[in-house]
């Protein structure tokens, strides 16, 4: 009966009410102005330990500072994710949290909202590695979700990477090959004689030895891959129609005729739009993210100080 008396005492009600109001006010204030994020001495010590665990040595001052900034970024992203309630709405996070708690509370049947409340009370979203990373990742994605791809910028990007998107021109050629191991010896001399015949107007058909790879128009770079640099260079410098050689490669001797140069077509933007957009986005994202983190960092009392 003592307990009942205590429970019904107005003083207790007063205290409880006061505590509730006080808590509510704190909560409201916290909503308005988030608690500043700082690197505590403990955090710093942990970052140093992490660094050592990873690299086998202690970080330099600059390395520690960079490590702190990266960690602060993550803390900001995490705090924002929690403020936005992503730990309740993200299906991956929800499932992970529920899975964790059902491990721990194996015999208790509690509904999902209650379990998620408990997860939050245990600060599990901050501490569970998978949830933490997922929330940070979701926030990064939110910060980047409305990136617009400017058509002109994309065209400039394609132009800047013309080599990637259009490649060089191609060399159309044919060759007569004299194997180093051909019967009758002295392949170089035989090649020289064949060249004289060609220049005198002989037909190339039937001369030389077969090669395991067919000749087809290719870029100088592709020719270098197969025959080496000298081969590609000789063709690049040849006059169209002339037979040149004998050119020595690891295979033997080659007589070469450049049949024509095929100019590289200009990059076709319409074909490339999507490919280029993905590449452009991937290149822009780190800088964009840093830029969009800036106001968030300010919100949590952080400046760019210490950033390298």
């Amino acid at each position: 009966m003592k307990l009942r008396a205590v429970l019904s005492a107005p003083a207790l009600h007063f205290l409880l009410l006061g505590a509730l109001l006080h808590g509510g006010e704190q909560w409201w204030q916290a909503r308005q102005l988030p608690e500043p994020i700082v690197v505590s001495a403990d955090d710093r010590a942990r970052l140093r330990r992490d660094w050592r665990a990873e690299t086998g040595r202690w970080p330099t001052a600059a390395e520690l500072a960079a490590s702190e900034q990266r960690w602060l970024d993550e803390e900001v992203l995490l705090a924002e994710a929690l403020r936005l309630g992503l730990d309740r709405s993200d299906p991956v996070v929800r499932q992970r949290l529920l899975q964790n708690l059902r491990f721990a509370l194996v015999d208790e049947v509690i509904d999902e909202p209650a379990l998620l409340d408990q997860a939050q009370a245990l600060r599990m979203p901050e501490q569970d590695l998978v949830v933490r990373r997922r929330l940070i990742q979701r926030m990064e994605q939110r910060l980047l979700q409305d990136v617009r791809i400017d058509e002109a910028e994309l065209r400039r990007y394609v132009a800047r990477h013309a080599g990637r998107y259009a490649g060089g021109g191609q060399l159309d050629y044919r060759q007569i090959y004299f194997s180093r191991d051909r019967p009758g010896g002295d392949a170089a001399a035989q090649a020289g004689q064949a060249l004289a015949r060609l220049r005198a107007g002989a037909e190339p058909a039937g001369q030389g030895d077969p090669l395991l790879v067919a000749d087809r128009a290719a870029s100088a770079e592709q020719l270098q891959r197969r025959y080496g640099a000298a081969f590609a260079q000789a063709l690049e410098q040849a006059a169209v129609g002339d037979w040149i050689g004998p050119l020595e490669t690891v295979y033997g001797w080659h007589l070469l005729q450049l049949r024509g140069r095929i100019a590289a077509p200009a990059p076709d933007f319409e074909t490339l739009r999507q490919r280029a957009a993905y590449a452009w986005l991937a290149e822009q994202e780190p800088a964009l993210l840093r830029q969009r983190l800036r106001p968030l960092r300010q919100r949590y009392g952080l400046t760019e100080a210490g950033r390298s």
Binding site: D50, A53, E54, R133, R134
Partner: peptide
């Protein structure tokens, strides 16, 4: 002894 590795896969179970 390993730090938090970044960038996991999405999706669970």
């Amino acid at each position: 002894g390993l730090p938090i590795p970044r960038l996991p896969y999405c999706g669970v179970g």
